[in-house]
Design a protein around this nucleic acid. Structure first.
Length: 264
DNA sequence: TGAGTATGTTCAG
DNA sequence: TGAACCTACTCAT
């Protein structure tokens, strides 16, 4: 499930699987039937990502995908699975198939439209040249809480509810701190941490935020595929650092998890 | 079988 | 601010 790290990961694996070759494209579900016809038989040149937005480039037509809350791509070797009735888009070549289900957005856009979409987003910390000053300027002039600002895609693109909670915990910052009260060093710490964590997450598309020394023996035994957190979805569990119960509140209609002692 | 939940966004009121 | 939308999964009935 998708935050910025997932989208970067998907761009990478789709580029590896499909770029430079003609693609068979169709919409088993039918809802992207017209769009898929425009890319059917075309060569995918590359894939790109900005925040939670994925772009698959077929020369002029660009497929813009936003996975929303439940959208997902399943990439398989040819012959390993059939699309379901909910598959919005299937891409296929000699080697691979990719099925897209449940996206909030799957549409064809032009380069100009793609530029417009990106222009409305804040810098994406996963990008090498992301402009931290731009983010800082928007944070420091705002009365909104840092918890609210981190989730605002026009301030910073790609951070979702998991990374938000985990970043704030790792920096021991009170989530209610207003933007204008933020200190620059603390902001820089979060920014650098976001860059690092998103990049780590993008390697295999999984969120990794917990230093292994803070995992329980049971958790360590579960191994590589499980996803652990310091605070996300750990309401009522003891904090991994101070053993205070993790609390839950709501910010802009989304659940926020935090440690009342570490993040005083 | 149905309610509840989910790493998101947009739009109506 | 709340509902709607896209889907799949878990848990209670």
């Amino acid at each position: 499930m998708p935050e910025g790290h997932t989208i970067r990961h998907l761009a990478t694996v789709h580029e590896k699987a499909f770029s430079g070759k003609k693609v068979v494209a169709y919409s088993p579900q039918g809802r992207f039937a017209v769009g898929s016809r425009h890319i059917d038989g075309q060569v995918m040149t590359h894939a790109s990502a900005h925040g939670k937005h994925l772009f698959l480039h077929f020369g002029k037509p660009i497929v813009h995908v936003h996975l929303g809350l439940y959208g997902w791509f399943t990439l398989k070797k040819v012959g390993e699975g059939l699309p379901s009735h909910t598959t919005r888009l299937r891409l296929q070549n000699d080697e691979y198939t990719s099925d897209l289900i449940g996206p909030t957005k799957c549409e064809l856009v032009t380069q100009e439209q793609m530029n417009l979409i990106i222009s409305k987003l804040g810098p994406d910390p996963i990008h090498e040249d992301a402009d931290a000053e731009l983010v800082w300027n928007n944070v420091v002039k705002s009365k909104k809480s840092i918890a609210s600002l981190l989730m605002n895609q026009s301030v910073v693109a790609g951070i979702g509810n998991v990374y938000r909670a985990e970043l704030l915990f790792r920096s021991q910052l009170n989530p209610t701190t207003p933007g204008f009260m933020m200190n620059r060093d603390k902001f820089d710490e979060i920014w650098q941490d976001a860059r690092a964590l998103l990049r780590i997450g993008a390697v295999d598309g999984r969120i990794k935020t917990v230093n292994p020394q803070y995992l329980t023996n049971e958790e360590k035994a579960v191994g590589g595929h499980a996803q652990f957190s310091y605070v996300y979805k750990r309401t009522g569990f003891p904090c991994r650092i101070c053993f205070t119960e993790i609390e839950q509140s709501s910010v802009d209609g989304r659940k926020l998890y935090w440690c009342p002692k570490c993040q005083m």
